[in-house]
């Protein structure tokens, strides 16, 4: 019995990926130019910015931009159906679940960007911690709502992304720990490790979603 494969959709998929790549390159160049100007103006001078803070803001921005793009796509049932590889138009349930995923993604981006930004503006630790705790609780509640609503494919994707994150994360952290032990790399903080793991999770999620036809 032969497997029915979507060969005819490959050129369209390749065009889509190329288009997204070009948009990414343009946004990246624009972001670099803006960042260069802001840095040259001295706005960041004296601020306690670490590499993990920059990575957190970068990853957070990717999440927020992706969430906004997803929300915009969900405004058109036909476009959403094409994006999700569905026949016809997306139904109310598919639109609702997509928007819930976008909301969770946006909230993830905000949560990861907030700690360095709050530290930069010198907010008192207790209210900042309380705010992040509340956001994390809301994020967890939304994640559980989505997890209970979706079917086995989505749950499998979550489990695979988690496993891949562990594999990627522990590999990177092992190498760093070895370098640190040998005295050739600086010590990491809890924040550094968290941002590395979140970045690994983002990469793993994109890979798993593409492999399972969810993106």
């Amino acid at each position: 019995m032969a497997r029915v494969a979507p060969f005819s959709s490959r050129p369209r998929k390749a065009g889509k990926i190329l288009g997204l790549l070009l948009v990414g390159i343009c946004l990246g160049v624009a972001g670099y130019l803006v960042g260069e100007r802001v840095a040259a103006s001295g706005a960041f001078d004296g601020l306690p910015v670490r590499w993990a803070d920059l990575l957190a803001v970068f990853v957070g921005m990717i999440m927020v931009v992706a969430a906004v793009a997803t929300s915009l796509i969900s405004l058109s049932p036909a476009l959403l159906a094409r994006t999700l590889n569905l026949e016809g138009q997306a139904g109310p349930d598919e639109i609702r679940d997509t928007r819930l995923q976008a909301l969770i993604l946006a909230l993830s981006g905000v949560i990861v960007m907030l700690p360095p930004l709050l530290a930069m503006v010198d907010v008192a630790a207790a209210p900042a911690l309380a705010l992040l705790g509340l956001l994390l609780a809301a994020h967890t509640a939304l994640n559980l709502t989505l997890y209970r609503r979706v079917d086995e494919l989505f749950r499998r994707a979550v489990v695979e992304a988690g496993a891949l994150t562990f594999w990627l994360g522990q590999g990177v952290l092992f190498l760093w720990a070895v370098a640190e032990r040998l005295g050739v790399a600086p010590a990491l903080t809890g924040w550094d490790i968290y941002v590395v793991l979140l970045t690994a999770y983002l990469i793993a999620s994109v890979g798993v979603a593409a492999r399972r036809g969810l993106a």
Binding site: V4, L84, L86, E152, L153, R212, G213
Partner: peptide, 18 residues
């Protein structure tokens, strides 16, 4: 009792069902 994405993933061989 699954999503259309799951049907699509099954049909295109991207996912083996439980």
């Amino acid at each position: 009792g699954v999503s259309r994405q799951t049907v699509n993933a099954l049909e295109t061989g991207r996912y083996d069902p439980s």
